[in-house]
Every structure is written in C-alpha cells, then in structure tokens.
Amino acid sequence: MSPTKKVLILFAHPSSHRSEVNAPLFQASQQVEGVTCVDLYARYPKQRINIDKEQQQLNEHDIIIFMFPLYWYSTPAILKEWQDLVLEHGYAYGSGGNALHGKTFLCAISAGGAKSAYQSEGYNHFTVRELLRPLEQTAYLTGMYYLPPFTLFSARNAVEEHRLQSHIDSWLNVLKALRDDKIDVAAYSNATSLNENLRTFVAND
C-alpha cells in the first residue's frame, strides 16, 4: 500500500552524542518509508535557520512532528527559535497565513520524571499535555490538528529497565499509522497522551 500522508520529523537534541533515548528513536524513525527526518542542530550548527527552506519543507508535508527531550517543560532552544522564525505572519497565521491549514501536529518527547510526577498530585503538578499548551495553541492558531504528545517517562532509566525497545516499536507503529492516515484525530481531543489508546487504533487496522 502506498503512503498517503507525508510525515516530517524535526528532531532537536543539542547533545545527541550523549542521548540514550531520543537518538535511537530518531534513528529508527529514519527507516520508515515516507517519513522525512531532519536533525535541526545538525542542519543549523550555528542556529542560523533558513526560513525559506523550512517553510518550503513544511509545505511539502502533511504531518509535522517535533521530537525532543523535554527541557524545563519545554523544547530545546533551537525549536523555539525555529517557531519564532519559520511561523511567520502571512505564512502560518494572520492574513494570508494559511500554509499550515489542515496539517497535523504532534510532539514525541522524553521526560525525566515518572508518569506519576506529571499529574496534579505529582511534583510536576501538570500533565505533559498541559505543560505543552503553548505548542497546542500554536497548532490551533496555525490551523493544524493537534495530537497529544507521545511520551517516554522516566527516560533516564529506560535503557537499564529495558523499556526503550518497546517504546521505539510502538512509536514506529504510530508513525506508520500517521503516514497511512489511520488515526482519528478527533478521538484524541481530550487524551493526555498518544501512548494510551494506541491499542485501539492499531486494533482497528
């Protein structure tokens, strides 16, 4: 079956030679057909982002994914820089700014804390979806469908606890489902995470 949706992963890890989770996840993603993988820190070692090139690339894809380790409840710096520069008025929002309308946006992240920490009773007090509200609102303003984040919790111990491989596997399933347009975006409007109901849509296949 030929891919129906084009997927773009924008990967941001400033220290990828020390990465235990994100680098392998990114590498595995590169094997999936129909998915474009971009390492932003490699493309822009001096953080001089080429706006035209990035916009052109966005135009050519239907699903936009930010892949990053959660740094202080947000993205690494280059992804913020990327948003500030690329999502221009007249391109992504405002009058005539409808280039991203109808695309789908989501984040694939790793978080240091346990899942129990990311809730109102935990020491982080908010769920990851709540913490990433700025990105969610960015998606709404730019006319994109928003999917809840795909998250690996307690990421610092994932390798030791042999949780990484299963995480990668389910991510690859998500990627393929996205590519083949098999995810019902509306079903996730209130979900805190994309991981949870994974079984549902894979089963529906």
């Binding site: 020390r18 235990e20 690494p76 920490a117 020491y123």
Partner: peptide
C-alpha cells in the same frame, strides 16, 4: 567545558519526590 545539556544522573527523579 561540555556542561551544556548534560543529562541529570540516573534515578535523579527519585530524589525529587
């Protein structure tokens, strides 16, 4: 000098509870 983006130690989150 490679202090930038050094990941926290393993099990660091246990001490945050």
């Amino acid at each position: 000098s490679e202090r930038g983006w050094t990941p926290p130690p393993k099990n660091y989150s246990d001490k945050l509870e």
